[in-house]
């Protein structure tokens, strides 16, 4: 099983947990907020949850009796063209579907049409086809490329590598990576992440694509030229030098000074928080946690957090925070942790 598949499996676990909870019981206010957080956190959550809900609804339109063996055993192999190949059994199924439709919840109407256009695929699976190297949540990987450039992949990340005679091109598909680039003036080293091209000017730097589609470039040595992929000009739009960081979301932010050792502390499996808000700490911990951590209570979001923690154990980090902050950490299911007011 590849890393990507492992993380899809985890999303499936969480999605089924939410679906069954909502379909067989009622969510309390805290759980409701946790669900919305989880759903909005990642497009893959949205796609898989919608597919799962569709599967759940479709199951209600199956015939009541146990199926007999004369249903086509291997329908995948059946050619998808001849409507006259429809057996009477299929007709039964359709009829059953129309009679049970009134019991369906209202949003069934929203999804019923999609059956006709069911080109569903989890984006994560497409990602795994395109990616040359990838890590699952809570995994790290170091890759040495043919030119001796070294790439370190952070948790839940994926890259595509394409080297040619006149260019070394890396696409960051997801997550975060640190690049230690081997010098080769004849072949520029360019990293594309979201709408940003970052060109190494003999250098070490990190690029991150966040869940809310922001691209962040942090330079730890020498310089990086950044430009928007929309830009026609060959010239970089900004030069980011050692100890600086730039973010892009629709437009470039101003260049900020950062403590680059702190910003890339994940490379040594550490997380360093310096007066950071609890909300941003939770967002950060979620990147390393297999499952979902959610913060409940608006007044907690701005609570300041300081300290150095181990990225390998986000749960232990939460337990430590519980001792020093006015918060309670509750493990609600194997996949869900809620942080709330004490």
């Amino acid at each position: 099983m590849t890393n990507q598949e492992t993380s899809i499996q985890m999303i499936r676990d969480t999605a089924s947990d939410w679906l069954v909870r909502m379909e067989t019981g009622e969510l309390n206010e805290q759980e409701e907020s946790a669900f919305v957080d989880w759903l909005t956190a990642d497009e893959r959550h949205q796609d898989i949850f919608a597919e799962m809900e569709q599967t759940w609804l479709d199951a209600a339109s199956l015939p009541t009796e146990q199926p007999s063996d004369n249903i086509e055993a291997d329908v995948i192999a059946m050619p998808a063209q001849a409507s006259n190949a429809t057996s009477s059994r299929n007709a039964d199924i359709i009829e059953q579907q129309t009679t049970t439709q009134s019991q369906r919840p209202w949003w069934a109407w929203a999804v019923a049409a999609s059956l006709m256009f069911g080109l569903i695929s989890a984006p994560g699976l497409w990602l795994s086809i395109n990616a040359d190297y990838q890590t699952a949540t809570g995994e790290w990987q170091t890759v040495t490329l043919a030119d001796n450039s070294v790439i370190e992949l952070n948790t839940d990340s994926a890259i595509q590598v394409s080297y040619s005679d006149n260019q070394r091109h890396i696409t960051l598909l997801r997550g975060e990576a640190y690049f230690d680039v081997a010098k080769d003036p004849a072949r520029p080293f360019i990293v594309t992440a979201g709408d940003v091209n970052a060109q190494a000017l003999g250098t070490e730097f990190a690029v991150q694509l966040t869940n809310d589609e922001q691209t962040i470039v942090t330079v730890t040595e020498h310089e990086v030229g950044v430009s928007s992929t929309d830009s026609a000009s060959e010239k970089p739009m900004a030069i980011v030098t050692e100890g600086e960081q730039i973010a892009y979301q629709d437009t470039f932010s101003t260049i900020q000074k950062v403590n680059h050792t702190q910003a890339t502390a994940w490379r040594t499996q550490r997380l360093v928080f310096n007066d950071q808000s609890l909300q941003s700490v939770i967002t950060e911990l979620n990147r390393y946690h297999r499952g979902h951590i959610t913060l409940y209570g608006d007044h907690l979001k701005t609570q300041k957090v300081n300290g150095v923690f181990n990225v390998k154990d986000p749960v232990a980090t939460l337990k430590k925070l519980e001792q020093s902050l006015p918060i309670t950490v509750t493990q609600m299911t194997p996949y869900l942790i809620v942080v709330s007011s004490k």
């Binding site: 919608a50 809900e53 569903i120």
Partner: peptide, 23 residues
Amino acid sequence: KAPRAYLYRAANNLIVDELRKKK
């Protein structure tokens, strides 16, 4: 009992459906 969760589910179904139709 959880109308906000309900609205998000419904919105999500419409979005995913729309993206699929588009494709």
